[in-house]
Design a protein around this nucleic acid. Structure first.
Lengths: 192, 192
DNA sequence: CGAGCGCTTGATTGAGTTCAAAAATCGTGG
DNA sequence: CCACGATTTTTGAACTCAATCAAGCGCTCG
């Protein structure tokens, strides 16, 4: 599954085989079972994860005990608690495995060396950060301006692969509606 | 008003008078009247703004024609359309002046030279970016988990200066409730 | 001084939640 | 491979928070 990662890199940045060999040393392959928690609330996040197979997610638990999903990461996606990772602060949310998952991870030192070996990686990183920021902005706006149904339609349009493989209750949690409401939304849409 | 900016820098990063003199060259002071639009939807954002007096805001207009405020920036706050600025993409939102406002601005080149003169500015920048990301994350979570009243209470607790000087309808827009609802929320809270 | 804007208040409506229970699906051990 | 228990999804009914529509008040500023 490591090749998923190297293929990704080759596509995203110009990189020689030699550089790639060095970079591979910096990333560790890991396998976890569904449900495994990779990052606990309050811990300092030490790693960024790149999923090569399976699905990870980040989520919070609010004062009423309810889960709210912030991000999913399937194959070829990165996930991390970026602020905790970057500022060395306690994490504000959890990361766990939605399915049995294989991923590669690296820590801050790994990133620094990566950047030394391939300067273009800095640029890739900048873009990833902007993508993440934009995605949170868009989600916020969708909550300020759209109904549950509109958010669901936008979700399945934007992330068809997620819509197909995730349990509905997780999509509901991501969208900010109850599973019951999502069920009704889908029923309503099906009759059209 | 430029001193507001230099005082800010002196507080945030170790900087010699000599360095400061060079950095000052990179920032232009500007004055705009209430209502002045600094960034139009669809334009590429060329500047980041640091408010020395007054108040700026960023906002979107949705398909139904309604405004939704993303950020406010009063004295000592930065504001920009970061993704547009960083990626040289069309802006997804507007920036305008809520009050008559004085600010300093710089463009990408300015930032690059700033970083050359004072390497610690890179670190400041990183922190600003993380603050912004965290703030969007927190707002998203507050929409996933809290009522309008809870969001209002959290707002006035987090940003007392904003709560005092902004028109209520702008606070409502920021919180994602109608002005009518905010009025009722405040009435309700006042009776306690 | 008048027009317009911002805030308030009231009445009504509606989207989505909650609580409850049935139906469908999944996973696991025998 | 089937059977059983657990989890997920669906459906129903009552309810709630906030939006909408509408009208009136008060202030400001042109």
């Amino acid at each position: 599954m490591f090749s998923v990662f190297t293929d990704y890199l080759k596509e995203k940045i110009p990189i020689t085989d030699e550089q790639l060999k060095k970079v591979e040393q910096l990333f560790r392959t890991k396998k976890v079972e569904k449900g495994k928690i990779l990052l606990q609330l309050g811990e300092v996040c030490q790693y960024t994860y790149f999923v090569t197979n399976g699905c990870l997610r980040s989520y919070v638990i609010d004062d009423k005990g309810k889960e709210h999903i912030l991000q999913f990461a399937i194959e070829n996606w990165w996930i991390s608690e970026q602020v905790s990772f970057s500022n060395h602060e306690p994490a504000m949310y959890f990361i766990d495995a939605v399915e049995d998952t294989e991923f590669v991870q690296t820590d801050e030192q790994g990133w620094n060396e990566f950047h030394k070996i391939v300067p273009a990686a800095l640029e890739m990183n900048r873009k990833l950060q902007m993508n993440s920021l934009r995605s949170f902005q868009k989600r916020l706006v969708s909550h300020l301006s759209a109904s549950g149904e509109e958010r669901y339609l936008s979700f399945i349009k934007t992330y068809p692969p997620l819509a197909l493989r995730l349990p509905q209750k997780m999509i509901a949690s991501y969208l900010g509606v109850t599973p019951e409401s999502l069920s009704r939304i889908r029923k309503e849409l099906a009759t059209q």
